[in-house]
């Protein structure tokens, strides 16, 4: 099956100029401007297959929004090629628009002053959705999102969580095969987040809807996406699965050991000579630190169980936030930014 989205060497340059200060500066700006080129998206290539759910993450100003705007046809690329649903998004914008759904977490697409259902009815007209299909879909959406309760409330009176549920439903009313979500869970409480995630998963499973979502909430990625792309300074730093990313960036693993009794401590200390750091947490529990390339976790655990009397062994996972923080601050991945990182997809 051909990919749903194909992006090749995508570049977006913005031309800005430094405004001079004061009235005299403003007058000078009229006839001579010092222009600067700013490259927001720098040679990005990837492709997304049908039914994939892809997380697109990166720090603020990394080029996520610019990418989404090009993918949805709002912005024209400076160079490079995009094919999505068989269209060139900006050249065939209007026809392409029928085949995609877009959710902006920060901005609603619903009409502010009228009841939600009126907005839906307008969208039904705009996308020419047959009545039966429209009703069927609405009652289907209601099962997970529980829309019916506030269907007649004006949008401005909805809570953020309710509004987002409606916005997500609105974007999927015409059953687009491709859905873009720009920070769909921003500012939501845990219940609303869960409801939206469950809904997206179900739509993806039932209709095979391809989804690309940007987020700052990494639990979105953990729950929804089998694949994530990390972008910074307009470049893709990583493109692959979350477990692979963790494995790649966890240089140090920790194993927590709870001993049966105090005397076992001496037995455990033996391991510190073999590239394993032994740290005392309290009398009976210790934390072992080691590098995966030097020490194999399975081997280590087998030997500890054989040689030491233990109550419990726990591999401690590094939280994904920590992994991502290290990428954003430049501690990881940035060295080989030009090449394809190991473990990444071809």
């Amino acid at each position: 099956m051909p990919p749903v989205v194909e992006v090749e060497n995508l570049v977006k340059d913005f031309r800005t100029f430094d405004r001079r200060e004061g009235v005299w500066g403003a007058i000078q700006d009229l006839y001579s401007r010092r222009y600067r080129n700013f490259r927001a998206v720098d040679n990005v290539s990837f492709s997304i297959g049908q039914g994939e759910m892809v997380g697109y993450i990166g720090p603020n100003g990394a080029g996520k929004s610019t990418s989404i705007k090009m993918l949805t046809g709002i912005l024209v690329p400076s160079s490079g090629r995009i094919a999505a649903n068989g269209f060139s998004p900006w050249r065939e914008r209007t026809r392409y628009a029928r085949t995609i759904g877009v959710v902006f977490g920060q901005r609603t697409q619903l009409w502010w002053d009228i009841g939600v259902v009126e907005s839906f009815r307008l969208l039904q007209k705009i996308y020419e959705i047959p009545q039966a299909e429209y009703e069927h879909r609405l009652s289907k959406f209601d099962e997970v999102l529980e829309l019916k309760r506030y269907l007649h409330t004006p949008v401005r009176k909805l809570s953020l969580g309710e509004r987002m549920r409606c916005d997500v439903a609105a974007a999927l009313l015409h059953n687009p095969p491709l859905l873009f979500l720009d920070e769909p869970t921003i500012g939501l409480d845990i219940v609303a987040k869960e409801s939206i995630r469950t809904f997206l998963k179900e739509v993806n499973r039932e209709n095979g809807t391809t989804m690309l979502l940007t987020t700052h909430d990494l639990s979105d990625i953990e729950e929804l996406c089998h694949r994530l792309m990390i972008i910074d300074h307009g470049r893709v730093l990583y493109d692959g699965g979350l477990p692979e990313l963790k494995r790649m960036l966890w240089e140090e693993s920790t194993l927590k050991v709870d001993l049966r009794d105090r005397d076992q401590a001496a037995q455990l200390a033996v391991f510190s000579m073999e590239g394993v750091g032994v740290e005392r947490v309290d009398e009976l529990s210790y934390r072992l630190r080691f590098r995966r390339e030097e020490v194999q976790p399975a081997e280590l655990i087998r030997r500890i169980v054989n040689e030491v009397q233990v109550l419990d062994l726990t591999m401690e996972e590094q939280p994904i936030e920590e992994v991502v923080r290290r990428i954003y601050t430049g501690e990881a991945l940035h060295d080989d930014a030009h090449g394809t990182p190991e473990n990444a997809r071809p």
Partner: peptide, 13 residues
């Protein structure tokens, strides 16, 4: 306010 983005996303002139 950037509302024009939304206009561009709809399949109507």
């Amino acid at each position: 306010q950037g509302k024009f983005d939304r206009v561009l996303l709809r399949p109507v002139h």
